[in-house]
Amino acid sequence: MTDDDKSAKAYEQLGRLKSTLREREARVAELEKRLATLESSTAVQFGRLVAGAARNPKSGRRLPKDLYRLWRRRHSPVPASGTSAGGGVQPERVDRPEDRLLVAGPCDTMIIAGVFGPGTAELLGEHAKVVPLYPHDAATVLRSADVDAVVVDAAAGEPGGPWAYLGVPGMYDRDLALHELRRIAAARALPLVLYGAAPPATLACLTWDARVTEAATAPGRLTELLEPAR
Rank of each mutant, 00 (worst) to 15 (best):
T2R: 07
D3W: 12
D3E: 13
D5H: 12
S7L: 14
A8E: 09
K9A: 14
A10V: 10
A10G: 00
G15L: 14
G15R: 15
L17Y: 03
K18I: 11
S19A: 14
S19L: 12
T20F: 06
L21A: 05
A26D: 11
E30K: 10
K33M: 13
R34M: 10
L38M: 09
E39N: 07
Q45K: 15
F46E: 05
A51W: 10
A51K: 12
A51F: 09
A54S: 01
A54M: 14
N56W: 10
N56A: 12
P57V: 14
S59D: 12
S59V: 14
L63M: 04
L67P: 00
L67Q: 02
R69W: 04
W71L: 06
R74L: 06
S76L: 03
S76F: 07
P77Q: 12
P79K: 13
A80R: 11
S81Q: 14
T83S: 10
S84H: 07
S84I: 06
P91V: 10
P91I: 06
E92C: 03
V94D: 06
E98N: 04
D99H: 09
D99F: 08
L102M: 08
V103M: 09
V103W: 05
A104H: 15
G105A: 14
P106A: 10
T109F: 01
I112K: 01
I112N: 00
G114E: 08
G114P: 05
G114I: 09
F116V: 08
F116K: 05
T120S: 07
L123V: 15
L123S: 09
G125H: 13
G125M: 12
G125R: 13
A128C: 11
K129I: 00
K129T: 12
P135L: 07
H136N: 03
D137V: 04
A138C: 04
T140D: 09
L142D: 10
R143V: 07
S144V: 13
A145D: 07
V147Q: 03
V152T: 09
A156M: 06
E158D: 11
P159M: 13
G160T: 09
G160P: 01
G160L: 11
G160D: 06
P162H: 10
P162S: 13
W163L: 05
A164N: 01
P169S: 12
G170N: 01
D173H: 09
D173M: 07
R174I: 05
A177D: 02
H179N: 05
H179C: 02
R182Y: 06
I184K: 05
A186P: 00
L192V: 08
A197T: 15
T202W: 03
C205Y: 00
L206M: 11
A210Y: 11
V212Q: 03
T213Y: 03
T213P: 00
L222F: 07
T223P: 00
E224K: 12
E224Y: 02
